[in-house]
């Protein structure tokens, strides 16, 4: 009996590790940008291409940056959640229209609703690289001083809004 104790203990430890491993999502790469200043940008506005907006224009408020594209299927899934969040008027949502065609993007917003205060056009995806974007959609919470406080990779769900985004926004505003 005693002979089996050691292999059994090893098995339990291995199963423990494997169990934890199953729950981890390898797609979620922790961002090194959290707690750092949001990278600077100066980008044209989707609906007013002549106008450019930079990150310094957005300082002094807590805001969300949502990276989206009309070609992104998961963005459709997430979109109603953002529309609902925008309706509550708790926090302004700015869109980063990532590697998209502006006409497609506008048509997409017309079809599904536009939760964004404005969408900024990152046609070549350069700003996306600065923000460490690797899988659209991604969402950032940025505080008054322009520091990134939270990043959600993948679609924002009602649970994310309830458990992460809203409490954090409240805390940052308070």
């Amino acid at each position: 009996m005693k002979k089996f104790l050691l292999p059994l203990a090893v098995l339990v430890v291995v199963v423990g590790f494997l169990g934890v491993g199953l729950k981890l999502n390898p797609r979620e790469v922790p961002s090194p940008l959290i707690g750092k200043a949001a990278p600077p940008f100066s980008l044209p506005v989707l609906h007013q291409p002549a106008k450019t907006v930079s990150n310094t224009d957005l300082k002094g408020q807590v805001w969300l940056l949502n990276v989206w594209a009309s070609w992104c299927v998961t963005c459709r899934e997430e979109h109603p959640v953002l529309v609902e969040l925008a309706r509550q008027k708790v926090v302004p949502i700015y869109g980063l229209n990532y590697k998209d065609k502006s006409d497609d993007a506008k048509a997409w917003l017309k079809q599904f609703g536009d939760p964004y205060v404005m969408s900024l056009v990152d046609e070549k995806g350069r700003i996306g690289i600065d923000y460490g974007v690797y899988g659209v959609p991604e969402t950032y919470v940025i505080d008054r001083d322009g520091v990134i406080r939270y990043k959600k990779i993948g679609p924002v769900t009602p649970e994310t809004v309830r458990d992460k985004i809203l409490p954090l926004v409240k805390q940052l505003k308070g």
Binding site: V29, S31, P32, L33, D130, Y131, G132, Y134
Partner: peptide
Amino acid sequence: LTARYGDF
């Protein structure tokens, strides 16, 4: 690159 995407 690591400043943007981490050691990963």
